[in-house]
Write a protein that binds this DNA or RNA. Sequence first.
DNA 1: GCAAAAATTTAAAACGTTTGCAATTCCGAA
DNA 2: TTCGGAATTGCAAACGTTTTAAATTTTTGC
Lengths: 347, 347
Amino acid sequence: MPARVTTLKELAASLGLSITTVSRALAGHQQIALKTRERVAQAARQAGYVPNTAARALVSGRSGFVGLVLPIRGPNLVDSFLGEFVTGLGEGLVSHGADLILATAAQDQAEIAVLRHVVESGRADGVVVTRIAEVDERLAYLRRRGFPFVAHGRQLDSDFAYNWLDTDGAHAFGEAFDMLYDLGHRHFGLVTISEPMTFRHLRQDGLAAAIARRGDPSVRLDVATAPRFDRGARIQAVNRMLHGPERPTAVVALFDELALTVMEEAARAGLTVPRDLSVIGFDNVLASAYAPPGLTTFDASIRQCAREIADMLLTVIADRPAEPLTRLIRPTLVPRASHGPAPRTRN
Amino acid sequence: MPARVTTLKELAASLGLSITTVSRALAGHQQIALKTRERVAQAARQAGYVPNTAARALVSGRSGFVGLVLPIRGPNLVDSFLGEFVTGLGEGLVSHGADLILATAAQDQAEIAVLRHVVESGRADGVVVTRIAEVDERLAYLRRRGFPFVAHGRQLDSDFAYNWLDTDGAHAFGEAFDMLYDLGHRHFGLVTISEPMTFRHLRQDGLAAAIARRGDPSVRLDVATAPRFDRGARIQAVNRMLHGPERPTAVVALFDELALTVMEEAARAGLTVPRDLSVIGFDNVLASAYAPPGLTTFDASIRQCAREIADMLLTVIADRPAEPLTRLIRPTLVPRASHGPAPRTRN
DNA sequence: GCAAAAATTTAAAACGTTTGCAATTCCGAA
DNA sequence: TTCGGAATTGCAAACGTTTTAAATTTTTGC
């Protein structure tokens, strides 16, 4: 391996040129003679020259990084999409030569403090924020700072515009209802969470809208609510729904983990899915394919979304478009075996 | 919100001090009067001053980042532990004020090229490398460069020492064998992959060693091998094993995805797990809890391992210890319902 | 063959921080 | 007061790059 040249100064010296010329040649400036540019490029390649990131960032004011504050959910709980999400981001960034910074909040530290630090230390040229709450202080902060960002998800009734990409949960839940209605179901259950997340709101609205659209007064909807991360409470809520005086014939869950709980509790109660009960989830987590009889759900193609988010963010960083960029992605139905015709007789 | 001060110069000016003094005061140097230090700290906090990362990195030669080259497996395949792994790394790094850089290899780009770039551009002070092959050029490169790194996994018969943390797969597979043997099993199956990964080697060795240790000549072991990512070939290999003249009563799979395939194919063949066939996996992926009847497997607590890897790496970066750091982590058995006593009669 | 224009190259400043060394201030002792 | 030394503060260089403005070389037109 040839001796590595670490700085522009060394490279320039070895070529008998000035630092300026070498810098410009590597950047491909037209004003440098083509012959020189080629000579420099060749020498740089051969010497294994790689420009120093810090120096470049210092003078240009751009770090070439995009930031993501790691969403940590709990000591034993990791965001199930994190892997797909960062992979998608990485894929989207790499074609533009950008890299991803993952900043983590310490235990006692608020996520927004980490975000602040990332933004204000110049570590990143832009950030992506995930898991948007109905009213999210992070978005307000970023907007105030005028810092480039793209949100994965939306605020509710935002009083300002911003760049976002979201999954069309409302449409999916409407689609789920329509499918189940056409299979004869009239008594529905909805398993949801108590936290104020926008996606909860939108999905529920989508379901309600579909019901209203149908205009059938015989349609009935029961709702079971539990805190997002409280497994015990969730099981209780599901069981209240399954063992009420009249049981829904079809249950729609806000996301797969809730749907899997429904299937487990249904099995425990001696119910057969989908003969006695149809269940539909949302997210298409790995387990939904393996949990018997196979959960019908929606796939939001997180990786692809993340790739688009990366593209959007790089556009925002480079062009600062006047109009905010927004994308609504329609999730695809993954039909498996947990849904079917409504049972003939109520028990 | 008060006007934000972005540079040391501004902060110094507002205090009527020199840049030097302010810099030293913030760094907590004793030579600066205590009163001054407090005054500066107070002003910095109030003004929301955050030092510029690039400038600091340039002068100190340290970026404060740790690098990870994103392991991308394929267009639709994401390393299932990636989320846990980066979360653990983040947790380990945050207490030392370090952040994580995720660099991604473009489609046609070798992972080592990305690694090179990360190392040589000064983006990171150290890197962690995962999925170590039996002979891994990345380790050789990093060693040649004298660049701080910690490997998650080991080379086979390495001719140099380095820092690593690995899961004790050999021990786990021995434990699995002993447990199954004590349940009466004598005819074993091993489902494995054809790729030269160290973990394959070690786990197989652990199994073989346990068999030898037992010294029972009636023990028999069938091996089914398929390429790691070829689902079709995997299913074929499993079926050959299940439909051979004599079928094993217990199957140990190199990792959960293989074990789940075994369970699926066993169900398809009308076999009941664990009555007719015991199955044990490795990894404890989410689906292993949901796949009926629940897969007995081993948990390597990836997140905790990643946290330790972060600690190790930070130690290596700071202290450059003469002796390499190594940690062997024993995975814990997660007993579920896919293993049981050997069937009385062979069919 | 010469001046002007075009093409190419370079010197020097700047980015925001840390740090070796020098300068200043402060204090008590003479 | 004045001096010495300790305590405190500040100047200026350095890190490796990009960029403005200027200098140099080459080419062109007559």
